[in-house]
Amino acid sequence: MIPATFEYVRPSSIDEAVAALAEHGDEAKLLAGGHSLLPLMKLRLAAPEVVIDLGRVDGLRGVSEVGDGRLAIGAMTPHYKVMADPLIREHCGVLADVTAKVGDAQVRHRGTIGGALAHGDSAGDLPAVLLALGGSVIAQGPGGTREIEAADFFVDYLTTALSDDELVTEVRVPKLVGDWGWRYEKFSRVAQAWAIVGALGMVKRSNGHIEEARVGLTNMGTRPVRCTATEDAIRGQSPDAIEDAAAHASDGTSPSSDLNATAEFRQHLARVLTKRALTAAVG
């Protein structure tokens, strides 16, 4: 319940934050909304020597159009702002809808999109949506900025492609063009619990057919999963193809077994939930 002591640094610009990271290296942890880090610190499962609070860094909040058909979301934009943002609702409503399933209302008031993604927890709801969308993050370090595709960003359990001296400044998602429908099936023991399995199904509808589909899975391994086999199997097909295609949703996954589900049951759930998500997405 009580974190260990730490040195507190509160930069006011991205450059200062990068400098603080460079100075303290792996002894430091970045504090965004704090809803992943502080619980770990309270249980003393994490005890960083330095905490760099990004709460006062200018320019890390808000949503804008980048100009290349994408939206840029400041890393410190809290979940509830993502859910309500007009640009996101108009062009990438799936992100707003999945974000609404993160934690509970109080968590969504503090937790941030950048923090949730940088935590790299495949049981979180946002990694799978970023992956399915083909989104990316902008990372900044002493050497400047770089863009990391979602497919490359999530490396392992609680591990991302960020280096120790980098921070996420921005999240980028494409504007969805065409007649898209989506559904995120979050399957959990109680409302506020983490997903046992989550399945995001997105379909672009065209003349009664599925022109394109995206499927992302939560908590089906150490990284979020994108089910290309299922996506490929329904591309250009009628909705009747969903059932057979969803049967491939668990192909190649290696989920963990825990108190809530064996790996086998998780794979079964992934198939069932993917079928339901895609069916609902078609509408």
């Binding site: 619980p39 209302a105 109080q106």
Partner: peptide
């Protein structure tokens, strides 16, 4: 103005 869990916020924040 937003509801938050005050056990998961540092006073300095």
């Amino acid at each position: 103005g937003q509801s938050v869990k005050s056990c998961t916020v540092l006073a300095v924040q």
